[in-house]
Write a protein that binds this DNA or RNA. Structure first.
Lengths: 108, 108
DNA sequence: CACAGTACTACGCAATGCACAGTAGCGGCA
DNA sequence: TGCCGCTACTGTGCATTGCGTAGTACTGTG
């Protein structure tokens, strides 16, 4: 099964979760998500998600010059983002529990 | 958070799971999914999924007359469907585990 | 200077859940 | 009889969103 569809609606949550640990810029978020196990994630998806979340008012953004490459656009959570993370996380948790029950009944 | 996006890529799995318990027709599958906890599921989504899975060769289909309403189009798993259920279930399980780890780190 | 790695942007596609509308059979009720 | 509500299914079109691809641009290395 292609796991890409599983990310729908969850990528926001995943991005918020890694930014909750510490601020990060796009390329960095991609690497952290891949290290966390989301290996097949596309970089364009992450950049798109960051822009969406920022546009939705859930993230702060500041540019930092780097001496190891181009400038870096850092993102961090604000109050809206933290609230969104909390609410999304609880929705995810109960949804995952429901799915696990379903699967348990089907394949005991 | 809107849970509808969470269903992306998982509705197939949920439908396969309920059909693994026993054959069912569209309306019945909708009810069973709602009882299982997927309360906001739309009926058109389920009918669409059943058609998609059938077209993909994962389901058998037979029509049964009913004396309590219109005819009922039953669906059941075949070998392809069972294989798909097993593979999707394992993908889901590991994906869910990854997400739970991510969330645990973010909100300990 | 070519090239690899880093970092970001923009465009368009494909999958899919869902709303809405339509068709149709059945039983109950006034 | 006529209407309503429940059951049951189909078809159309839309919105969201992850991703592929291409393009821009900076830095250090050989």
């Amino acid at each position: 099964m292609d796991s890409s569809q599983l990310l729908k609606g969850v990528l926001d949550l995943a991005v918020l979760a890694v930014l909750a640990e510490r601020d990060g810029y796009g390329y960095d978020v991609v690497r952290r998500l891949r290290e966390a196990g989301l290996e097949d994630i596309g970089d364009a998806s992450v950049y798109g998600t960051l822009r969406r979340l920022f546009k939705a008012g859930a993230l702060t953004s500041y540019v930092v010059a780097s001496d190891e490459g181009p400038h870096r656009k850092y993102y961090g959570l604000n109050d809206v983002g933290r609230a969104r993370l909390a609410s999304s996380a609880s929705t995810w948790t109960s949804f995952a529990a429901t799915m696990n029950d379903l699967l348990k009944d089907a394949a005991p």
